[in-house]
Design a protein around this nucleic acid. Sequence first.
RNA 1: GGACCGUUAGUCUAGUUGGCUAGGACGUCGCCUUCACACGGCGAAGAUCACCGGUUCAAAUCCGGUACGGUCCACCA
Length: 842
Amino acid sequence: MFLGAISVLLKLNSNLHVGLILMQPMPKDYKFVEIEQKWQSKWEEMKIYHYNWNDQTREPFSIDTPPPYPSGELHMGNVLNWTYFDIVARFKRMQGYNVLFPQGWDCHGLGIEIQVEKANNIRKRDIPSDQFRNMCMALVEKYIAMMKEGILKLGSSIDWTTEYRTMDPNYWRCTQLSFIQLYQNGYMYQGTHPVNWCPRDETAIADAEVDHVKKEGTLHYIKFPIAGSNEHLLIATSRPEFIPACVAIKVNPKDDRYSKYIGRKIVVPLTNREVTVIADEAVDMNFGTGAVQICTYGDKDDVKTVIKHKLPVIRLINENGKITDTECKYAGLYLNQTRTAIVADLTEAGLLEKTEKIQQEVGVCDRCKTNVEILERKQWFMKTMDLSEVVEKNANEIPWYPDYMKNRLIDWAKSLDWDWVISRQRLFATPIPVWYCKGCGEIIVAKPEWVPIDPKIEGPRIDACPKCGGKDFSGEQDVMDTWMDSSITCAVHAGWPDRPDWKRLFPASIHPSGTDIIRTWAYYLMVRHLALFNERPFNSVLINGMVLGADGRKMSKSLKNYAAAPEALAKNGADAVRQWAASGGATGSDIPYRIQDVEYGKRFLNKLWNASGFASKLLEDYTPQSAANVELQLLDKWIISKTENLTKKVTDSFEKCQFNTAVEDIRNFTWHVFCDYYLEAIKDRLYRPEVHGKESRLAAQYTLYEVLYRLLQLFAPVAPHVTEEIYQYMYLDSKSYTSIQVSEWPKFNPDIVSKEVEDQGDLIIAVLGEIRNDKAQKKIPLNAPIKNVTVYTGNVEIAKIIQKGAADITSTLKIENFTVLPDKFTQGRQVPSTEVYIQTEC
RNA sequence: GGACCGUUAGUCUAGUUGGCUAGGACGUCGCCUUCACACGGCGAAGAUCACCGGUUCAAAUCCGGUACGGUCCACCA
């Protein structure tokens, strides 16, 4: 009823489609710019992409759309990603699911803050924090507008009524609520542990935010005097600046050079301190000198050693990477200045034996590329290490497309050394809803009904500290990691915490992710939802690879292989670009952006448009029939059977997210089977009913009409605009759906598949092809008549089959006398892989 | 160092339970301006499916190994 009403409205509103004649003539050229734009706004008006929250009958299908980080214009990677899951959304919608395809924006974080700092040449502390936040929000809005435009131009079938921003108060509420629940469940704790620290951004960062880059370093060989003797130990270190924080020397107990020194005291150069030589089998005897200084903290290995051997900690640097130890002569210097000073001092003292260059990998902040240090400071953590087993279990229980990508998540979960540090010393983020009692230090976590709340601005809504009765509180200054926002999307998309029925949409049906964010987004989603709800967040994972430049290297502006997505879309149209995205390579593999692929997509659209236009002309006088009313000929049955098999193949491919094979199959069939053979073969039947009979003509029209409809449907998820436009011209009146996008996905019908018919049709096509070859070789134009063709089939059965296609063969090739003989005669042209021979005479 | 992925014509790529005469695209060459489409049609050339070994009646496909490339992770103080 509802659909019918829309259909009527649409017809009233659109002069183009109103008329008494069934089939409207289609324009000669396909003008993708205006047609794509037209449908993008019409679909929006028709609300066909809205999720129906009240529908209790259709099964829901929910897509965990990634809320992208607004970083500027849409890029080709986004195009690939959004094409993938838009195909899934459209396919599932046509299959009858109530599809939830939401869209949010992941706003917070260092990326935006750093851009604001750089653009205005300021640091976060230089201006009031609310002013800084406002600048961040303005920049985010600008970027959202740019990306949204790109996503719209791509033709994504998003339900925009679901749009959200993680910086909105309501989303803050969700994030803070999830924090509170996790605290209550024992998953959130405060602690003083060494964490990765970015001195430039002055914040803790998680392992996942540390990039490793190859750099050339210098290995310094330094003499560490042995206390009470004239001897010394030679230590090799790439970080001499950490000597003031040296707390031990470790050697391998199996190392004959040093085992005698274990337990001895060593004088730390340039300080008056003595440290002990300790034994640790992890020391590589072949690297450097085999004696290692342990400093707090030069690297992660130092952290491990300190914990293992219960060594003391010297806090050498402060939050911005300056030497903090006031006892130390280098106090106030930055680390790199300290290094220069220390190397000079060591040289002067005669303690620097030599230096050599080494290749090393250094951890850098993934946002600003500053070298990461390790710092101990009070932080909030989520207990994630304990969940690694259950993460693995759940990852194994669901399908991944492609399957092998699950290893990336499992390997990452198993490899983690530390819990997830979720506090950040930044501004543009969701506040941690916590206060501290100034009297006794008691932690006051917000009650669920208080959020959203910013403890920097507002106090806790209690009269007194429940522990000591104190009335003074200080609000938590730290904020949350951005991943705390985006790692609850599955629940938020489903309607948590407000909709009582949110579990209807949870877990999400499919979680799309890129190879680059499996260890962050997919992982954090897993641990957070498992900890919050004891349930996995999604029931399948779709992984996209990275988009490379045309040269196969990583796409980047500096390599001059960068392609701008808005430009690509404007120049080629969404349907062409979407074909590239879908067919550029197997799902999950990295695919280069090749303009030839886009252009091929464009040419295919043109072919499809022309074929449809031609068909609509041939169907001008056709009234849609039911199958029972037509007497199908061999080639009609042949292509119908093949189309049915194609339907099965394409449906299977879409189910398994194998977009590339689906697209290849549809295009090849449309172009080379439907257009090149079938359309050519039926022309004469359609043009000359007086020769072939009215029944034959009607059968051809019926087949043409239904097969083309099927092809349009199969292609609709990939190229929604062109298929919609053709549908509106040719099928709106008879098929009754307001849009091909809400038409019912065809179900494979084995009853109309016939291997026998396909084999027979293939034989006719093969004979046809062979006579064509003959003409080509004799350099006769294809439409020139041939006088005599004699076919020797070798047996009666084959002769009968070819006789069935005789009319198609003679009319297609303009044969005047066509004779089929059952005799065995092996001269002339052999039809490949048959015993059929052909003799022609012009 | 570990894990994963890949290696198919000049280039890019398909080939998911082994049956291929290895499919498609771009490019190249030849013919055809044939009444949907020259953004087209017909045709041709071009691949020992990286290498070595194994399983099998049968291997691009399965197993083991080697080489090269890519990605991720862990590292070397």
